[in-house]
Each structure stands twice: as C-alpha cells, then as structure tokens.
Design a protein around this nucleic acid. Structure first.
Length: 384
DNA sequence: AGCCTTTGACCAGCG
DNA sequence: TCGCTGGTCAAAGGC
C-alpha cells in the first residue's frame, strides 16, 4: 500500500482486491490479451519514472473502446451496481477519489473511485470530451457568459459552479463545483486549459443520492443518440479485444453497447502515427445517462514493473487511439513499500499531480510529434 | 421565477 | 504576526 509519508495530510487508500479482469472478460467471451483495462488507482507518488519502474514489454494495440468526438457526456461510468463489472468492485473501507492523469491535449480522462455505503458501491471512470467533443467547453472562452459553456464534465450528476480561482502553480484556472442535490456535499474541482480542455478533475466526498435520471443534462445527452449495434463476441476477440457487451457490461451501465458505425464522426485518428490495426473502428457507447459515450482507450501499451524488491505493482501506459497525444496510465496492484526518497524529493519540489512527461513514456511516444500529457491518479479523500 | 455562472471579497491554514 | 494560497461565500447578472 502506498504510504504518503511525505505528505501526512494525504490519507492512504485501502482497496479490496479487485475482481479478475481476465475472468470478467472471459465471462463476456473476450480473450483479454495483453491488456488490462483499469486497475487499482494508486497514485502518482509512484508515478512512472525510469527509476521506480522497469519496462516489461511493449505491445501493439489493444483497442478497447472508441469514443467519437461529439459525445459530451464526459462521463464514462462503470456503474456502481454491476457485480460482474471489473469496475464495480466494492470499496467499503475507503472513499478513494482519484483523478486519472489525463491526458490530453484533446481529451481527458478521469477516474474516480467513489466509496459508498454497502448499498451503493461504485467505481466511476470518467472520460471527458475531446476538443472536438467539447464544443461547450470551448465556448467558455468564446462566450464567457454562457451557462452551457462552462458545464463541468458530465458525470451523471448535476453540478453548480460556486467559484473559480487561478491557482498558483497551475497555468489553468480552477473551477469549483458542488453537487446540486439537496444535502449532498460532494464537490469537485476542475481545471481547464485555455482551450477548454479539462486538465484535472478532483472529486471530493461521496454522493448520498442516486444519479439524476431525468434532468436537463441527461435529456440533452440522450438527444445525441449513437448508433447501437452489438458486436459478435467472436469478432470482438478477433478485433483485438473489444470490451463491451450489452449483457454483461450493460447490466451495470444500464445500456452499454458496441457500435461499429462512426457515422462520419471525426475520430481524430492522427495521420500515420497511430498504431491502430483495425481498419474499422468499433466503439462502446454507454448510456442512457451517459448517452453517446464511446471511447477508444488503447492503441499502444507499455508495461512497467515497480523495481522495488518484492513489489509487484505494474504500470501500464497506453496511448489513446483517439488521440495519440493522450496517455492513459494504469496501475495494477499496491506498492508494499514507501515512496523512494528520490521520488519524494522530486515530488515535493514541484506541484503534485502535474506530472511532466517522463522519460520512459516519452520514449514510448517518441515517434509522436507531440508529447503525451499524463493523467495523474490522485486520491482526494478517504472515509473509513 | 428559478437556476446557473461570474467574480471580488472573505476566511482559514500554513510557513 | 504577516503574507501567501486555496477554498468558499454571496451579490449581481444572464438565460
């Protein structure tokens, strides 16, 4: 377990073992292949650095999801309640709020582990709109007074902005949002780049209510219906492990589907520098409240292992196919040691969670003209 | 009318 | 104690 000895104020997280992804994928007829979707979230104190992780291997694309530009839901919610979902694990001992390190010049990802009571367990993984997707976000800077323009990323809840501040050390303004639900004290902080891209989202607290189902936002989302077609399992496998099954995933998502139809959507596939093996793009859409959510998570992955003796934590670095500049870093397992001293000092010397691109991952993307932007995994609060 | 964003002021924690 | 910083409040205005 990672201990934040260098930062006493930050709690540690205890997460129960997560279900086997392999077993889950197997249950939906998918051969996992060389990829892991999302694992435990432990933070950037252990963030990839050449000194703390050694590269195990690199693999070529294992596309998981595709996200069409234009989806706005900004929320990719692995529903709370679905026991089969690898993400629907129970976290009854902790409230772990994490933000993924994301990403993105043109897309953002965010993961949140939200610890709820026994009746509501959830893990949320949110992916936010790309620049193509987030016209609304862009409008913020074009139409400062537009209510629509500064909508926080839609994660299924309703939020009211109550403040904005330029935070020192960050080039981006930080917006503060509260859940509008009565008696719900959940807040989130969102940092947006000047072009409207969300650069960081931090959730705080836990919702004490269900996601609203019939509010305006959701209604809007539902308006943008995506095509829905179910991918045959066999094809899923052959295509490189496409996750998404209306029967399995769908139970948690309520409505999760796979689509092969892009409908003319610009996927931002970058010219020649994407290692996307599939001539056709297939997508997973998540709805209803997320409506048109589709994302493509991986096109390239490198595996790293923590170099600390006896520590089996692995890190996966994926480049999002939807944007070669996007990187998704996934940690698997828990560190059983303290943060290396050198890591601590470097951690303290700069603003946490604003990880600069690190050598190894740069190397992974050395063929790309643009550096990836890391998503940081960050725990915000824990309630035991 | 209600809900939202904006934004300057205020407050609390910390060194 | 003071200054800095992050977080919050609340009035004003827009939709």
């Amino acid at each position: 377990m990672p201990t934040d000895s260098h930062s006493p104020a930050r709690p540690t997280i205890t997460l129960p073992p997560r279900p086997s992804l392999e077993s889950f994928l197997s249950s939906v007829g998918i051969s996992p292949g060389p990829m892991t979707l999302v694992s435990s979230f432990f933070a950037d104190d252990y963030s990839p650095s050449p000194s703390s992780f050694s590269q195990l291997l690199s693999v070529t694309p294992s596309p998981l999801f595709t996200v069409p530009p234009g989806f706005s839901p900004s929320a990719f919610l692995f529903s709370p309640t679905h026991p089969q979902s690898p993400f629907g694990m129970s976290h009854q001992q902790a409230l772990a709020q994490v933000t993924t390190e994301a990403v993105i010049a043109q897309s953002q990802g965010q993961m949140q582990i939200d610890e709820d009571d026994a009746s509501e367990k959830n893990v949320e993984v949110s992916m936010f709109e790309t620049s193509h997707m987030s016209n609304n976000a862009d409008k913020k800077y074009q139409q400062p007074s537009s209510v629509v323009a500064d909508k926080p990323a839609d994660d299924g809840y309703n939020w009211r902005k109550y403040g904005q501040k330029q935070v020192k050390g960050s080039e981006f303004p930080r917006s503060y949002y509260k859940c509008t639900h009565l008696s719900c004290n959940v807040k989130k902080k969102v940092e947006r780049a000047i072009d409207g891209h969300i650069t960081e989202i931090i959730y705080k607290g836990q919702h004490n209510h269900e996601k609203p189902h019939s509010n305006k936002r959701n209604k809007d989302n539902n308006d943008s219906n995506e095509s829905v077609s179910i991918q045959p399992k066999s094809e899923l496998s052959s295509q490189g492990c496409w996750v998404g099954n209306s029967d399995s995933f769908g139970k948690g998502f309520s409505d999760c589907s796979i689509s092969e139809d892009l409908g003319g959507v610009d996927m931002r596939e970058e010219e020649g520098d994407d290692v996307e093996p599939n001539p056709k793009r297939r997508q997973v859409s998540v709805s209803p409240f997320l409506s048109s959510f589709k994302m493509q998570v991986s096109s390239y992955m490198s595996y790293y292992k923590c170099t600390s003796a006896g520590c089996n934590v692995r890190k996966h670095i994926e480049r999002a196919s939807m944007d070669p500049k996007a990187v998704i870093t996934t940690y698997e397992g828990k560190h059983n040691h303290d943060v290396p001293a050198s890591r601590k000092s470097s951690h303290n010397s700069s603003k946490p969670h604003k990880a600069v691109p690190e050598k190894q991952s740069d190397m992974d993307f050395e063929n790309s003209n643009q550096r990836p932007i890391h998503l940081s995994l960050k725990e915000e609060q824990i309630i035991v």
